[in-house]
Nucleic acid binder design. Structure first.
Length: 230
DNA sequence: GGCCAGGACACCA
DNA sequence: TGGTGTCATGGC
């Protein structure tokens, strides 16, 4: 009986997630993320976007490009002060400079800057290695795995949590892993689907899903609890 | 002037 | 294990 209830619950979640995906796709269209020229830029962007708006990250990346230092070896050669100055627009520049240096150093150690070698690792192994690098937490690691390595993991960010709460998808706990299980246990492990789904959730989040007092009506209609309240 | 944005880490109880 | 402070700029 318990198993049956669990299965039904999972089906309901799957239906809900599929329904939401179609609504988001209809409303925002295909996103084709991540906005970057190559996998290394995806990885740098994933670190720089920590608690920052993408607009400011773009400025920092433009500075790195203009200085011709958007490679692992060039980042290693820069001093912390030089790197901090270049990424200044995206905030937390001292902390993020340390993170980028740690990341570039790790790339040399683990794969001699050869990302192809890195990406042949299985997902769990790659994730463990990334999480061991200073400055790379669950979300940044999963962004790298999904958008740079092209492996199917679901990225959980602030918007995903907020939207899950809005539509009544409540995980077993408030942890990153619990939210991730909510999506990964109910959707097929499909890189393209996870890529688009997360990108669309961010679109919706940027569009309407501010902290509750500022929440606005969204395209999810009656699926969204706050729309009912509003 | 205050709030918020595609987190992670260190520290503490 | 979970809560809190810190890191910081730029747009609205």
């Amino acid at each position: 009986m318990a198993k049956q209830r669990e299965a039904m619950t999972s089906e309901v979640v799957t239906d809900k997630l599929n329904h939401i995906y179609r609504r988001l796709l209809d409303n925002y269209g295909i996103q084709q993320w991540w906005p970057a020229d190559n996998p290394f830029q995806v990885m740098v962007g994933a670190i720089l976007t920590q608690s920052a708006t993408w607009l400011n990250v773009e400025k920092a990346i433009a500075n790195l490009k203009a200085a011709q230092v958007l490679t692992p070896s060039a980042l290693r050669k820069l001093s912390l002060a030089e790197l901090s100055a270049l990424i200044h627009p995206c905030g937390y520049y001292n902390a993020k400079a340390r993170k980028l240096k740690a990341f570039a150093g790790w790339l040399e150690e683990c794969c001699a800057d050869n990302l192809e070698k890195l990406f042949v690792l299985d997902t769990d192994c790659l994730r463990q290695q990334l999480l061991a690098v200073y400055g790379i937490g669950p979300e940044t690691a999963d962004s790298i795995i999904l958008y740079a390595a092209g492996k199917p993991v679901f990225v959980i960010d602030t918007y995903t949590r907020r939207i899950s709460d809005r539509i009544g998808l409540v995980p077993k706990s408030n942890s990153y892993a619990a939210y991730q299980s909510l999506f990964m246990d109910s959707l097929p492990a499909d890189t393209e689907l996870f890529n688009e789904y997360h990108a669309l959730l961010v679109c919706l989040g940027k569009d309407v899903c501010r902290p509750r007092p500022l929440c606005r009506l969204c395209c999810l209609g009656d699926i969204c609890r706050f729309n009912e309240i509003n």
